[in-house]
Amino acid sequence: MTAVQTGTTQAAAAPTLLDRMNSVTRLGLAVLASLPILITLDWVSALTMLCCQFGIFVACRVPLPLLARRTAPLLLVAPIGAVSMALYGRPGGEIHFQWWLVTISDRSLLLAVAVFLRILVLGSSAVILIGGADPTRMADGLAQILRLPARLVLGTLAGVRMVGLFAEDWRTMALARRARGIGDIGRLRRFFTMAFALLVFAIRRGTKLATAMEARGFGSERERTWARPSRLGRADLFGLLVTLAAGALSIGMALWAGTFWLVLWDAT
């Protein structure tokens, strides 16, 4: 008999000041923060908003490593948008380079910078504000504050919890394909057999979960109560004011710098 020792390690995330807000507020603020960026096309407003956002996140004690890890993928996406804007954006001002459909001009370069910044602003507010919210709290808020139907909200919540199980299934199935001698070639076919099996697992698990939920009185005619109250408080009001201020500042800066450019305008 041989005895073998093993161990596990785990880390937990500390709460940030953002967590004092209701999850629904976080969702709403992410939308609100994106408005001044969506209706304008200049670089000053976007840069101001980006600086404000990161300043606020840091002030709210969002850990820097987390901020970096969450927003890093955006640095891959943003250049793609920027490059295509530089190459194909509507030309204007001095033209630097021209070849077939590609025209690089002052105007298209300006657009490229603005689009690059916009993707960072929209993406980072979404991943930090919405991505960091607790799904259960979000569901509580959606049902209690926005009055969305409880069946829809809780059904979705319970389903989302199963995604983790599917990720595990997928990993195991990939190992199983290697063990069965079909791991070297035929990537596409392998994908389809795994997708089919995953569907079978999903339906089976979903059916069992639905039974378990029904056995616990879910989906009856009765008016449901909520064990966790979802309310709006001072933190939410504060969050709203800060976001409005940041939005006003970004547009104000653009007007002051003379770069303000509304989407519908055909400025040159």
């Binding site: 919890r161 979960l209 879910f218 989906g219 109560t225 064990a227």
Partner: peptide, 25 residues
Amino acid sequence: PESQVVLAKVGDDVAFGCENMGLPR
């Protein structure tokens, strides 16, 4: 065991049935 857990936290999961029965908080 996997397909009977509805919510992400122990307390919330036990409370789920009570909420459905319409019990006051």
